[in-house]
């Protein structure tokens, strides 16, 4: 039985056609050349995000990297520190903005959310002020 099996596999290998040419390269310069790895959760993230021109935070854990100084995409900051999501702000047109704070230099920045951001992480961030019973309870009692 095992000998039979072996011979049939040999015939299959002889009949197998040559491997197709791969036009997608996974190494440097391939289709993932511009990907970055999140400094917080180590997720590989592609730079094009639905809804925004500049992806600036990880869609899974919402962490960012301190590379831009004034305008998005200028790559002018030499800090390179990890930026953690601090709070959620809302623009007058109703769009959510994540407030990031750099963990190494303390700089703040506001970034638009992207279409593929983790909704659970976004809602957890938006609910963070209300989750704390000390301050929220005192505010509601005062009102």
């Amino acid at each position: 039985m095992p000998r039979n099996n072996h011979s049939s596999r040999g015939q299959q290998q002889r009949r197998r056609r040559p491997q197709r040419h791969k036009d997608v390269l996974h190494t440097q310069g391939g289709h993932r050349a511009n990907d970055f790895r999140c400094t917080s959760c180590r997720l590989d993230v592609s730079p094009d995000a639905p809804g925004t021109a500049h992806r600036n935070h990880c869609p899974n854990c919402l962490a960012s990297l301190h590379v831009d100084r004034k305008t998005p995409g200028d790559r002018d900051a030499d800090c390179r520190g990890r930026m953690e999501a601090l709070g959620m702000s809302v623009r007058t047109d109703g769009e959510w903005m994540i407030i990031h704070q750099c963990t190494s230099c303390g700089e703040l920045s506001a970034n638009r959310i992207a279409g593929d951001d983790n909704p659970l992480a976004l809602v957890r961030l938006a609910l963070r002020p209300l989750a704390d019973p000390k301050h929220a309870g005192r505010a509601l009692i005062t009102l």
Partner: peptide, 24 residues
């Protein structure tokens, strides 16, 4: 523009300058 919560549970107010867009 926003309320942020520190690890200690204290609330912080995030301000944005209407002239130069700086956040504090």
């Amino acid at each position: 523009i926003a309320i942020a919560v520190l690890r200690t549970g204290d609330w912080m107010v995030i301000h944005r300058c209407v002239r130069c867009d700086e956040l504090t």
